[in-house]
Design a protein around this nucleic acid. Structure first.
Lengths: 163, 163
DNA sequence: CTAGATGCTCTAGTAACTAGAGGAGCAAGC
DNA sequence: GCTTGCTCCTCTAGTTACTAGAGCATCTAG
C-alpha cells in the first residue's frame, strides 16, 4: 500500500478500508476503534493505523467473526508478545461453527430439493411444498437450519412480497 | 393426529406445536396467526386449526424460510384451488439461497483451515491468524460469508429445543 | 460567494424473537 | 376461605450489526 497521509477524513478512511462511513462511526461508538481526535470543525481525523484497524475488522467480518470475537482479536494484536492461543481458539471455534453450518445446510438442501422436485406444479391442494411444510412427519430433515437469511440480501423481502 | 379439544390455552398450544409461548403471542401480533377469541378471564383460546398453523410455521422456520415468505405460504395454503407456482418459487428461491450459502461457507472453511493450520502456536507477533486477518492480500477468500454468528448460536438452539 | 458534497448528532428501524417487570387468574391443598 | 404456585396478561426494552433519515454545520470547487 502507498503511504497514507496523517489526516484523513472519515470518507477517506471509508474509501481506503472499504467500510462504510456510518459503520465506521458505529465501530467507534462500540469501542472497536478508539475515540478519534477531531479537527477544528469537529471532524474525525484518521491515520494509517486506524485505517489498518478498519481493514482488519472488515476482513474478520467477511470471515464471519462476531464483533465480540474481533474485539478480542484486536486486543491480542495490540500485545504481540502474548501467546496466540486465544486467537487460535477463536479461529478454531469459528471453523467448527462453519463446518456445523455446512452440514446442516446440506441436509436442508436435500430436503428442499425433495420438496421442489415432488411438486407437480398443479394446484395448491396437492402441492408437495405446502404439504411437506404442513406435516413435519413427511420430512426427513430434523436439524436446525440457520434462520436468518433475509437480512443479508435486502432484496429478498421485496422478491418474496405477498401477491 | 388425535382429535384435540376445542379450547386449548396458549401453554397447551405451545406444548403441542413446539413453539414457545412468547413466540406464539409474537406471531399473533405480527399477523401470522389471527387474533384469537378470549376466555372470560382474557386468556387466548386455541383450537386444532391454530395448532396446525403453528406447526406449519415452525417447520417452515426450521427450513429457514423468513416470516414474510411464511406469510405468503400460509395465504396460499388457505386457497387450495390456486396454482402453487408461487409456493414453488418461494421454495426454489430458498433452495438457491441455501446452495449459494453452502458454497460460500466452503470457501470460508478452506480459508479458516489454512489460517489455523499455518499458526505455529507461538506468540502473537508471528501468529498467522492475526496476520492473515490484518492483511487481506494474503487471503484467498474474497466472498461474503454469512455474517451473524454469536447471537444465532444462543437463540437458535433455545428456539428449536422442544418444550 | 454559493452550490453541493461531506460531515456532525440523534433517533428510529430492521429480523425474529427473548427477557423481565408488574399484575391477575386459576386449581389444589389445608 | 386462604395460600401457594403455576400460568396467563400487557408492556417495555434488549439482542446483532448495522442502515436510513432528519436537521444542521462545515468544507471545497467553480
Amino acid at each position: 500500500m502507498a503511504p497514507v497521509q496523517a489526516h484523513l477524513t472519515i470518507g477517506d478512511a471509508a474509501r481506503i478500508s472499504g467500510v462504510k462511513v456510518p459503520t465506521i462511526r458505529f465501530y467507534e461508538e462500540t469501542g472497536l476503534l478508539p475515540h478519534l481526535p477531531r479537527s477544528e470543525g469537529n471532524r474525525r481525523l484518521y491515520d494509517d493505523a486506524q485505517v489498518k484497524r478498519l481493514a482488519f475488522i472488515r476482513h474478520a467480518r467477511e470471515l464471519g467473526f462476531g464483533l465480540d470475537a474481533i474485539r478480542t482479536l484486536l486486543t491480542l494484536q495490540d500485545r504481540p508478545d502474548q501467546s496466540c492461543a486465544e486467537a487460535d481458539a477463536i479461529a478454531g471455534a469459528r471453523l467448527d461453527e462453519v463446518r456445523r453450518r455446512i452440514s446442516s445446510l446440506k441436509a436442508l438442501e436435500a430436503e428442499l430439493e425433495h420438496m421442489v422436485q415432488a411438486c407437480a406444479h398443479g394446484r395448491v391442494a396437492e402441492c408437495r411444498v405446502i404439504e411437506t411444510l404442513a406435516d413435519h412427519g413427511q420430512c426427513s430433515f430434523h436439524g436446525e437450519a440457520e434462520i436468518s437469511s433475509s437480512r443479508n440480501d435486502g432484496s429478498r423481502s421485496k422478491m418474496l412480497r405477498p401477491a
